[in-house]
Design a protein around this nucleic acid. Structure first.
Length: 340
DNA sequence: AATCCGGGGCA
DNA sequence: TGCCCAGGATT
């Protein structure tokens, strides 16, 4: 059989995909009411994060920061606080910075190339914003699109990274893109990957483009894509549980730190000043980040008589704790173990 | 091109 | 436990 994705077939594929999308797309909040700002916020939140996780954050965010101007005017702490629990906190910092830059512009950028100049926006997010809001003819390539395209063409390449797959599949994605409805087409490709062309047990019988799909025809769509992954690394961190006069000692991440900048967490044991005495293990928790499996061991620690602590440390009462921004796991553990 | 982000959910 | 998720920045 010849390559089914000939130039004469592509318009039919586009029509089938868009027809399906029009009829069956999920009524996500940023689709029900579309604006540049809503697209930008949803795309930032959805980076490396599943849509179901994003939904409650998105609704809260829109109530507090309804537009670029409101976000630009908001203090940094308020912005970080709303992101608490969503992870990859640099996204929130970049989004805030972006709002301030956009609010200062005479008019909004319109092309993907222009959007990509802004903080926190790479090739994917730029294409999504520009195609959805300004009909810019730039194809998006995310994890969903990689899966759909590699199955469509039964591409057995062993990608060394998703970044490499994005690069290699770019021309095909661009060739398929419907020039009349680029935003809807981009969303349709992603929607298909999310609800039909799933990683496991894809619903090929309900797929609008299975006619053109080599993976389906061969009967092994789940074999694609093949992406090499790095093994999970195990990391252990020791932390201190120090309560004095009804307050819990917390440590603030350095403002210029790559991770958890200006956010609070239980103090690391290794970097506490002299005089703190490590006691028994209080509790132990696990969490994951990217390719790391992190075990956190929290010990009871007895402070010295007159502890001298620099500005990175703070004694927090339960009320203070409400105001501060912590990572999701630390917030949860403290709530579980500090029922004062 | 690799690595990190101290996320989170799911089989 | 491994894998994936509407990735981007940094080196």
């Amino acid at each position: 059989m010849p390559n089914p994705l000939t130039e004469t077939e592509i318009p039919h594929l586009r029509a089938a995909l868009l027809g399906w999308y029009d009829a069956e797309h999920r009524p996500l909040p940023w689709r029900q009411e579309v604006s540049v700002y809503r697209t930008v916020v949803s795309e930032f939140m959805a980076q490396q994060t599943q849509i179901d996780t994003v939904l409650p954050y998105f609704e809260r965010w829109m109530r507090l920061f309804p537009d670029f101007a409101a976000l630009a005017d908001a203090p940094e702490e308020a912005v970080m606080k709303q992101w608490e629990g969503l992870g990859y906190y640099r996204r929130a910092r970049n989004l805030h910075k972006l709002a301030r830059e956009v609010a200062a512009l005479p008019e909004l950028p319109t092309t993907a190339a222009q959007w990509q100049e802004l903080p926190g926006i790479g090739p994917y997010t730029a294409a999504a914003i520009a195609s959805i809001n300004f009909a810019d003819r730039t194809a998006v390539i995310d994890g969903n699109v990689i899966r759909v395209l590699s199955r469509l063409t039964a591409d057995a390449t062993l990608w060394k990274s998703s970044q490499q797959a994005q690069k290699q599949l770019g021309p095909l994605a661009q060739r398929l893109l419907d020039p009349e409805r680029p935003g809807d087409f981009n969303q349709a490709m992603m929607e298909l990957g999310a609800i039909r062309c799933r990683k496991a047990r894809p619903d090929c019988l309900l797929c609008p483009i299975r006619t053109w799909c080599t993976g389906h025809r061969q009967g092994n769509p789940e074999a694609y894509p093949q992406v090499q992954r790095k093994a999970t690394e195990k990391v252990t961190i020791e932390r201190a549980w120090i309560v004095s006069e009804g307050k819990l000692l917390l440590e603030r991440g350095a403002a210029d730190s790559v991770r958890l900048a200006d956010m609070y967490e239980l103090p690391r044991l290794a970097t506490l000043p002299e005089g703190f005495a490590k006691g028994d293990l209080h509790f132990k928790q696990q969490r994951g980040i990217s390719h790391q499996r992190i075990t956190e061991q929290v010990y009871h620690v007895k402070p010295p008589e007159k502890p001298t602590l620099n500005g990175h440390y703070v004694w927090a009462s339960p009320t203070d704790l409400q105001q501060l921004t912590l990572s999701g796991p630390h917030r949860k553990w403290i709530r579980q173990h500090w029922s004062a």
